[in-house]
């Protein structure tokens, strides 16, 4: 990220914290409402020893979803018919090291780190960690998420990965 803007960082951090809170509270509608209509949610896959996959149209990603894809994930979660995700684990997101800067196109670039702990009685606890890269856009209703990139650092994945536990 090129610059750093303290006021903008505080505003962006508030959005990231609210997003994490909605996921941990399972308030899926409030969570989705943070995303713009043309939003992309992208979790690249590991590629080689130190890198991640790149172009989502040529490389495999862990998750690459548009808004309809995100809505369908909520449909899957709320339907409680997925063997892997019913009952849902309890999650706690910790988001830190947030830094934001405005870019030329009036969009806001945000970087952050994350930890998610997941607990379910039948499984061992799962701790995951990674980095976020967001593109936020200013709208009449406040900041919206236009793009979220989630770098998942685990290269040996234990338990299912879904939008609520990364």
């Amino acid at each position: 990220m090129s610059g750093f803007d303290a006021a903008l960082t505080a505003e962006a951090a508030d959005l990231l914290y609210r997003e994490a809170w909605h996921l941990d509270s399972r308030d899926w509608a409030a969570w989705l409402a943070l995303y713009s209509e043309d939003a992309i949610f992208w979790a690249p896959a590991i590629a080689g020893e130190e890198g991640f996959s790149g172009d989502p149209d040529n490389d495999v990603s862990l998750i690459y979803l548009d808004r309809a894809g995100l809505e369908a994930r909520i449909f899957r979660i709320e339907g409680r018919d997925s063997f892997a995700s019913a009952p849902l684990p309890h999650t706690a997101h910790v988001v830190g090291n947030v830094r934001a800067a405005e870019t030329k196109g009036a969009e806001i670039e945000v970087s952050a780190t994350w930890l998610v702990n997941s607990f379910r009685r039948t499984d061992p606890p799962i701790l995951r960690a990674g980095r976020y890269a967001y593109t936020l856009r200013r709208t009449a209703a406040g900041l919206a998420i236009a793009r979220k990139t989630v770098y998942v650092l685990d290269d040996r994945i234990v338990g299912p990965i879904d939008i609520f536990n990364i």
Binding site: A43, A45, P56, D57, N58, D59, V60, S61, L62, I63, Y64, A72, R73, R76, S82, F83, A84, S85, V152, I157, G159, P160, I161, D162, I166
Partner: peptide
Amino acid sequence: IRKYEDFFLPSSIAVPD
């Protein structure tokens, strides 16, 4: 690629099940 991600990964909507 999109259909592979839908089904074959631990982050998909099939393999975890």
